[in-house]
Amino acid sequence: MAIRNCLVTGAGSGIGAAVAELLSGQGHRVALAGRREEPLRELSARLPGPSLVLPTDVTRPEDIESMFAACEESWGPVEVLVHSAGAGDSARLESTTDTMWDRQLELNLTAPFRCVRRAVPAMRKAGFGRIVVVASVASKVGAPYVSAYTAAKHGVLGLVRSAAAELADTGVTVNAVCPGYVDTPMTDRSVASIAAHTGRDADGIRAKLAAAQPIGRLILPGEVAAVIGLLVQEEALNGQSLMVDGGSVQS
């Protein structure tokens, strides 16, 4: 595969950082976007190939525009977009406020929509593009206490499928990966939140999350990145939502 201009959101840690390392290791140029600059700079320093550090809040439309503009100014149009930025809130349905609901849709559905919309014109013109959205097992099944997050993740899967159908004859593919519980800072925050709300032991909570995967452990960020790498390579994979969950949801 030719050397490509790649943009990874949520690159400061977890899945996004693992994806950036994989793509850079394959020789691609990788722009690193995330809210916190320091982790992005630390990641940039250890990547083997060219990189850009782009502090970005993807819930701000002006930040998204600046992020893409910086890539275009330095390297040219974004050819590979991996949207990994996201987070979850946990609450009982009756305790889920409008603010929580709006925040989850803004971050997990509207932000990827805006990024995909911004990336598509140049990809369509070039006759090549790869878009991968990090969704979730919550894109496929519901779970207690995460109604807003689950609604947003179900929605982003609809976005992926519709965009893939629209762009199928242009050389642009759009796919999603749907991880289960991954050993990332996001899972650490989930464990801490559950422990704070329930008084249960954090180690016990983590063990229960690990057991939710049939393989009996948390998924590793590199395992998710490897699947994303496949989606970046293969044009025949389009409109797919690949589960990376150790077999908990057979889809």
Score class of each variant (00 low, 15 high):
residue 187 T to G: 01
residue 127 G to Y: 15
residue 121 P to Y: 02
residue 127 G to H: 13
residue 75 W to F: 15
residue 84 S to W: 00
residue 130 R to H: 09
residue 91 A to S: 14
residue 98 D to R: 15
residue 150 T to R: 01
residue 157 L to K: 10
residue 74 S to R: 15
residue 75 W to R: 14
residue 77 P to R: 02
residue 130 R to K: 15
residue 82 V to A: 06
residue 84 S to H: 11
residue 103 R to P: 01
residue 155 G to V: 02
residue 146 V to L: 04
residue 119 A to F: 06
residue 109 L to K: 04
residue 149 Y to I: 03
residue 114 R to W: 00
residue 152 A to C: 02
residue 180 G to L: 06
residue 166 E to Y: 07
residue 156 V to Y: 12
residue 181 Y to D: 14
residue 190 S to H: 12
residue 116 V to T: 09
residue 174 V to N: 09
residue 90 S to A: 03
residue 84 S to D: 11
residue 87 A to N: 15
residue 89 D to C: 00
residue 147 S to M: 04
residue 170 T to M: 03
residue 151 A to F: 01
residue 70 A to W: 08
residue 137 V to M: 14
residue 136 S to F: 09
residue 108 N to C: 06
residue 172 V to T: 11
residue 96 T to R: 04
residue 180 G to S: 12
residue 105 L to R: 04
residue 115 C to T: 10
residue 122 A to G: 04
residue 145 Y to Q: 03
residue 131 I to H: 09
residue 168 A to S: 13
residue 85 A to C: 06
residue 151 A to W: 03
residue 133 V to M: 07
residue 125 K to N: 08
residue 144 P to N: 10
residue 172 V to A: 00
residue 128 F to T: 11
residue 115 C to E: 03
residue 191 V to N: 05
residue 114 R to G: 01
residue 146 V to C: 02
residue 78 V to Y: 11
residue 147 S to T: 13
residue 79 E to A: 09
residue 110 T to Q: 07
residue 81 L to G: 08
residue 164 A to T: 11
residue 178 C to E: 03
residue 195 A to K: 08
residue 119 A to M: 07
residue 155 G to K: 02
residue 73 E to G: 11
residue 156 V to I: 11
residue 159 L to A: 05
residue 80 V to L: 13
residue 70 A to F: 04
residue 126 A to G: 13
residue 186 M to H: 05
residue 161 R to W: 09
residue 195 A to Q: 04
